[in-house]
Amino acid sequence: MIKKTVEFIALKQRFIIAAAVIFALLYPLLFSDLFILRMGTLCLMYIMLALGINLIMGYMGQMTFGHAAFWGIGAYTAAILSGRFGTNFIVDIIAAALVAGAFGFLLGLPVLKVKGYYLTIVTLGFGEIVRLVELNASGLTGGALGIRGISGIRLFAQEFTSPRAFYYAILILVVLTTVILMRINNSRYGLALKSIRDDDSAAEVMGVNVVRNKIMTFVISAMIAGVAGAFFAHYISYIDSTSFTTQASQEMCVMVILGGLGSIPGTMLGASVLTLVPEFIRGLAEYRMLIYGVIMVVMMLVRPQGLLGYTDFGLIRTRLLEERGKKKGGGENNGTTGTEG
């Protein structure tokens, strides 16, 4: 049953992707309710964050609990820049990516000394320190008061503040992120990450500069979170350090853990379910974190790789098509040398 469904999705994946994209494009036109539009926007932003963290968790196999720090760094960068210099949205995004990327580099540096378990702890400490700096460096971040009155999306000498504009802005960013991740996945860099995940010392022996790849991954993942942060700052127009806590990092991790490590559709599923379900089911919001905790435990016990973890629909499709080709073509040359065993 599950296998059949997975195969069906794999075969129809192009159709499903097209349908999803069209739905995403029409969403703000179909639903004019502000709450629903807001949910869609937040959901997309969490998808972006979860995709970014999945690069570290799913592809590289490194647990991290400090990712909200990059989100926050991006948000503060955009808020400070646009507030003090009136920069436009593109500049904010690039600056947020660069600053967050620089901090990602900083957090990546410890891989020179520690790995795995201990590195996870370092990320946790890093996240808390960044939050405390945001809370206390009042001159820069507004301290406990945060930064208020952040502008809308400034672009082409205009300021867009409508919910729809924000929705389409984050949609574009999510699409870009997805494309980047797919390209990484299907490249030498993707191979290197997966080999590091599976066995990093063997990867090193097979020619992978493990340290460099790990640091690079922290940088890219941090940049994605930073951009999401810049968007977030403009979207909600008021930020303070209470958004960028370890708990927020944990929520991002749980989205990936539920949806599936190393799986783009899985991440989207996990992020969507966990953002939307507590909001749409009345009375569930209070139990939100409790549910996250239960998911963490249950997933670890039952399916540690997540629902769609390491499920490669592209691969399943290739295999299925090949099997069919064999049946139809009557053993057309597939180059099989099945003489062994």
Binding site: R188, Y189, L191, A192, K194, S195, D198, M206, V208, Y310
Partner: peptide
Amino acid sequence: FPRMTILENVMMGAYCRTSANVFQII
């Protein structure tokens, strides 16, 4: 590499003979 396909395992060997950088990949 237990969670990479057999093909990917071998491709992994050829990794050191490739050189695309991250910008070219993206």
